[in-house]
Every structure is written in structure tokens, then in C-alpha cells.
Write a protein that binds this DNA or RNA. Sequence first.
DNA 1: AGAGGCTAGTCGAG
DNA 2: CTCGACTAGCCTCT
Length: 463
Amino acid sequence: MAGRGGSPRGRGSSSGRVRAAPSARGRGQGQGRGSPAGAAPSIRGRGRPLSADEAGAGAWAGARGAPAEEGGSAGADPRPRSSRRARGCGPRPGPGSEQQLRAVLARLSLARRDTVEAAALVNELAARLVQAVKRDISFHEVEKLGAGSYYEHLKISEPDEFDIMLKVPIPRIQLDECDATGAFHYVTFKRHPQKHLDKFLDDDGKLSADTMLLSVRNIIKEEVKNITNMTVTVKRKKPGSPAVTLLIEKPQTQISVDIILALEYRSQSWPRSTQDGLNIDQWLGKKVKQAFKQNPLYLVPKHAKNEKVIKASTWRLSFSHIEKDIIKNHGNTKTCCEYDGVKCCRKECLKLLKYLLEQLKAKHRSRRELDKFFSYHAKTAFFHMCARRPEDKDWQFKDLDRCFHEFLDYFLDCLQKSDLPHFFIPKHNLFSPDLVDMASSNFLSREIKYELNNSFPIFKLEN
DNA sequence: AGAGGCTAGTCGAG
DNA sequence: CTCGACTAGCCTCT
């Protein structure tokens, strides 16, 4: 649940209470949600899946249809808790399909040992950096917020990428859209300037994203010099990136940690460009939507590109906190996926699409067609798909194969039409031809169709 | 800041 | 396969 402000949906609450006290959520001990699911030995060897949040989409125009309703898919889900995710019990599933997908998913789960080790390093590093940043008067009030796949329990393969937002509360600011997307804004202070942030204003009185991020970057670089108990380096700055990326070197692997500066914007209402977004009325409910919209918004330093002129002072809206909350509370019913509720396969579908994209990107690393696809595309398509199929019964655990195929169909459709609206800012088309050219979408479409029609050979590669 | 409770996840024993 | 231990993260409450 997102910030204390009030994440909607008090989840366990049996009452109709919508946003209040989550305290009543208590249910039994959170114990054994056993799921053996053939714990694959941590797969560290696997082809480094490119960078964190990326994944593409795939679309396919025609080939739909094939969703193989294969023989009654593995056992009916209704097995209560534990056994729920066990793969392939019950009648034999058709070749490939259900059982194959579950095997893939089992391989994608994070090995606990890796998670424990990575979390210890990352948490220690993050705590130090937060302290260091807080020492600067301008950033006195920063707070940490875990964002991205790892914190959404959607990280696959290895816990090697972490996104950590540093929230800077900024009251009374004004946002002005700076281009047609509705995502990028200029930030100015209303009325009184805020003394501790004045030094980040540019000549026009706009808050300069570049300057502010650079300031954080310098603090971090200094602090990193003092760290002796692990090997950490600060990666070279990428123009237009909202993050300071750190690398923790470990004997076998490295962990990348993105520190993302984020202005915390609380206001009566979200900006106009978001007005028709977050279409979850049928899925999570209007009250939930309303409650989400009471949450603050975040702005991350990110150049509005897409135009000849690069604007150094722009900020992009970020909804990571809401996305995280939706993913955690993804059901039409409150009890979806609770330990005594019914398990759905939504997250599994998303993991599979992310994996597919990662693998395709890795396979075609040397070409450029897939460079423009990111896991955020998969996530966005996922939200739309959930909104189109709002009911838990549309996502039963036993229907993984069908659900995944339908999800891919939808994704292919988006690619083919070059149309994937940002889930929160509907007029912002993430597949707009200026962002993703036709050659790229066609290439990805073709690759996905190929995988679809051949039982996903790319999932079998062991590399 | 710290303690305690809870969830969602992995893993080991039988 | 099932059970339950164990753990990270997150939340609430002093």
C-alpha cells in the first residue's frame, strides 16, 4: 500500500470499509503459504537480462486464436493455499502450455539466499546514502521509498536491480505542462520561494531538474568514497536519466541500485493530464480510484526529449507508488491471492511477458530494434489488460496459459496499432511512432508471434 | 528509532 | 506434496 496517506482498500478488512484503518487486516498468522514449486537452484548463470525496468511488448496482428485450450490445464486451482501453485498436478496439461509456463516461472523466482545477501548490501548502502543526503539542508526531509520490480515482487531471475526513490516533499508548487504528452512539466514555486531550494531555480524561476539531481549525485559520490565494507561505484551519468546509478560488485555478480530523486507533490487534485487515466472503475472500483487520487504524486528529473531542444528543467510525473499498490492489491475481490483466498495468475502473466521481453532483448542485443522497448511497456499493457478483464474469475490460476496468450494478443495488438496509452496519462502514447518506430514494432511483433507459434523456444534456452 | 504484527515470498524436512 | 520455518518489507503504534 502506498504511503500512509491512505492506500485504498484496506485489504484484509472484511468489512466494507474502504480506505480506513488497515489495522483490521489481521487474519491468522502469516504462515505457511507453502509452495514448493520446485525451487530451482538460483540461476545465476543466465544471460544478464539487460537493464532493470525494461521489457517490451509484442504484438501480433493476426495469429491470434491459437491459445490452445489444451486439455483441461493442470488441476483445478481450488486447491487451498499451499498446493495452489504447485505445477502440473491433476490431469496432464497439453504439451507445452500450462506446465511449461509454470516451469519457466519456477526458474524465475528469486533464490532466497541471493535475496538475503542482496538486501543486506542494498539496505545498508541506501541507509547510508539517505543519511548523507539528509545532512544537506536542501534535502533535510528526504525519505526513502522502494520502487520498481524488486519491491513489487515482480523481479525475475536475480535480485540484481533495485530502484530507490528519495522523496523530497515540496509544498505549494505549480506544474506547467511542457509538451503534448502531459507527462513532462515545469515546476515553479507558488508565492513564497522555499529558501532551502532556491538555489536550484534557473533564470526563469523554474526548478532545474538537472541542477538538483547533480547536487544529489555529488553528495552520493562523496559518501561512496567513505564506504569501505563493500565495493561500490557510481556509474557515469546518462543524459536525461532521472537516476544516480550505483554498482555494488560481488564476486559473481553485480547489483545495480538506482537512486531516483523525486519531488513529492501534494495537492487537491492531480494534474489535468491524468484526469481520464487510471481507468479502474470496473476492476478495483471507483472508491479505490478516488482514494488513489488523494495520494501525492511524484516528479522525477527527466528531460522532455522528443523535440530538437532538450529541456534541462523538466520533470516527469511518476506513479511508481500507485503502481506498486495496484500490483500488490490487484484483485477485483479483496481476498484475491490472500492465503485463504483464491489465487489468480495476473502477476505470473506479467512476469512472463517481462521475461519474454528481456530474453528477446538479450537475444537481439546486437541489433537496435528492441532498444526502445522497456518493461514499463509490459507493465502498462498489463494494467490495461486487467482493466479490460476486471474479474478475478477471468484470471484463475488454472488458466495461466489462456490468460498469458490473451495478454500477448493484446500486447501485439497495441504494437500493431502503435497505440499503448500511458495508464495514468491517457493522451501519452508510449508506442507513438516518434517514440517507437514502425520497424521496431514490426520486428518485435514478428519475434513474439514466432515464440507464440512455436511454444516459446526462447524460454527453453538455458544460457 | 525501535518494537511488534502482518504479508508474500523461498526453502528445508518429512 | 505438504507443512511449517524463515525472511524482507512494510505498516502501525508508542
